[in-house]
Amino acid sequence: MNAVSQGPTWTVLLVPVLLGVLALCGAAFARVLDARADGRGISGGVLAAPLAESGRLLLQQRRAVVASDRLLARTGVVLVPVAAVLAALVVPLGDRTASDLSIGIVWFNAMEVVTWAALWMAGWGSNSVWGLLGGYRFVVQGLSYELPHMFALITVATGAGSLRVSDAVAAQESLWFVVWMPVAFVAFLLSALALSFSGPFDTATGRDIVGGVLAEYSGVDRLLLVAGRWLMLSAAAAMSVPLFLGGSGGPLLPGWLWTLVKAVAVLGLLVWVRSRTATLRMDRFAEFGWLVLIPLTLLQALVVAVVVVGMTGGM
């Protein structure tokens, strides 16, 4: 495996393109699972459904509620997909990365948190009870998943001895982090679903509150919110590859292909989990996050720290 290095500047342009393709794959797979549950055949139409739906939303009229705060609403709607794309900046493809920030792991964390503000603004800005409820639900969801998520990231940083994503990949040359940080990996996957408000963590857009934050949005605004959710889920799935799954490491195939295969596999797993679970209500999950997930991820961080200290002979 070659060390990850920063590619030429134009590779930055690849980030939104590849992330978009990954997001389309995820959305298409979700449609396939839906179609199977519906008892429909899997056809080209099912696979192209996310594109057709995007087209429908582009054609649809935009709407706003009387006296809604359109500035906040617009800002929130735009920030959701933008934050997702920015979060994906530090994900390496093979042995090339668009930007190898020295604090790449914190960068991902910061961009993901933008969704808190964005979704709340979109909900509040719509001046609708459903948007209001959804926005606030996402904030309390953030308060419940964020600390386990951060501890998972810190566990990786401890194992790598660096906040640089390329160092995390290099540190996994002999052994993938997922092997000795399984709890952190699971916590990361859970928070991947939570930060993209999808799957069992879709309280913010729940059907019980008729779509929550999405309730009053139509047309291109709705498209950006929904696309932003898929982009964010894809970015988190892609990020799990350099953090836990050894980056581009793997036999026979070229490195970039391994990265893609692993990212698609993780995304597929997340989408599948989505189809097998009911929504976790936050009045139940908040306590679980604080009293079960935080101690577990802390223990994981402790184990990793002790191993790291032991290996470098720092005792």
């Binding site: 604090i103 914190v106 960068w107 910061a110 808190w116 503000a117 709340w120 509040w124 904030v139």
Partner: peptide, 24 residues
């Protein structure tokens, strides 16, 4: 100061969202 800069952004977003909760 890459770390401190990004950390301030990260922390401020979380804290201002909480602030919004109380302001409202």
């Amino acid at each position: 100061l890459s770390y401190l800069g990004i950390l301030v952004i990260l922390m401020m977003i979380m804290e201002m969202v909480v602030m919004a909760v109380f302001m409202i």
